[in-house]
Design a protein around this nucleic acid. Structure first.
Lengths: 213, 213
DNA sequence: TAGATTGTTAATCGATTAACAATC
DNA sequence: TAGATTGTTAATCGATTAACAATC
């Protein structure tokens, strides 16, 4: 049912639903959840929950609701989170290093968390060879090789702004088409490449708009 | 002209426009910029650029474009970035520490960057007293006191998920109504509190949707 | 069966784009 | 003046909500 193109707005909510369901599974108090309850916990209207899910199939039962276990399994499958996803991170500054630690710990502690940083790159020879959370920092020249070897199709970019476009080009050249960028610059990518920007300065600046005088 | 309520979609683009203008000022090649050019550099259509700016005043000249210097000054004023904004950060894990380093360095290097982390808190007594980028880690009990003293009205939350709601309640209790949250949980706040969530796991998970099988 | 809740269609809302008169 | 570009209105597009028949 992946024929029609699903909008980004819908995709953005799927991991939220999944998180609510994972929590419900952990707390394990019941087997069913209505769109009403799922919506409340996800911060979304019940109608929108149903509409979002309906894009992918008929997962609910009228008069009953959704089976938590089933829906969780489906959402994992839809999001490709039913198996490990190897990820590269480029740029071991303070932020990059923190991200490696954060995600690798999360991966090793939470068995349901399939996002796994498996290779770390930095152009600084001083940093190369250093161990970050069990991974050696490697030269960016090795990206294509390691990507192939490890099946990497997703990367996190945490390099300084000047280097970001170059790094992105290298990643795309290595066949990586899913990018999560922390550099505060607008990047240009081919249209079959998906890029999500986490521009933290921009977010803080927009928060400042709401300051009262 | 802040009578009508400006939508979040508009506010989100303002810092992008500002960044383009700051760059243009730095490169200093010219004094004017059209909505066409500003739009290209910001990744927005020219019509939308004009519409967004028109909410706040008539900053352009027909047939000419926008004066870069003037518009930059106006945007800074609109975003309250024409003066320093003191910020608190709570939670000195690897991510919190990286954020302190990142923003404090940015603040000291870039004279136009007015967002300034001025106080850092963590509940772990082991961490209290430690120096992070020139700031001592303090006990969260001191938040109200320091907030008053330093005029803090914005805070970054980088604590573990379990502690997040409690910390947010404390911050709101101390009169802080602008929050930037990194904890992977849905937080409940009074409606006059603005909260921006940077839920990095959620973003990576949604990127996984676009994996091809 | 009666009550509840889904999946889906129609109505509404809001944001973006197109178009153009005003005017520099 | 002629050409260019703004500010703004109308048209379009897309996302969310309301409503309800289907059905468990």
């Amino acid at each position: 049912m992946r024929t029609k193109k699903i909008s980004a707005a819908v995709v953005r909510r799927l991991p939220i639903y999944l998180r609510v369901l994972e929590e419900a599974t952990r707390d394990g108090d019941k087997e069913l959840m209505s769109s009403q309850e799922l919506g409340e916990k996800a911060g979304v209207s019940p109608a929108l929950v149903r509409k979002d899910l309906a894009w992918f199939g008929e997962f609910g039962k009228q008069g009953v609701g959704y089976d938590i276990e089933t829906l969780r399994t489906e959402l994992r499958r839809i999001l490709h989170l039913d198996r490990d996803i190897p990820i590269a991170l480029v740029g071991v500054g303070s932020l990059g290093e923190a991200l490696v630690r954060y995600f690798r710990r999360r991966y090793s502690l939470d068995p349901g968390f399939h996002l796994n940083i498996v290779a770390v790159f930095d152009a600084d020879p001083e940093k190369q060879g250093q161990d970050i959370e069990g991974l050696p920092v490697q030269a960016p020249e090795l990206i294509p090789e390691r990507a192939k070897e490890l099946g990497i199709r997703m990367a996190i970019v945490a390099v300084p702004p000047d280097a970001a476009q170059m790094v992105v080009d290298a990643l795309v050249g290595a066949g990586i088409r899913l990018l999560f960028n922390f550099a505060p610059v607008k990047l240009t990518v081919p249209e079959d490449v998906h890029i999500i920007n986490a521009d933290l300065s921009l977010e803080l600046q927009r928060l400042a708009y709401y300051l009262e005088d």
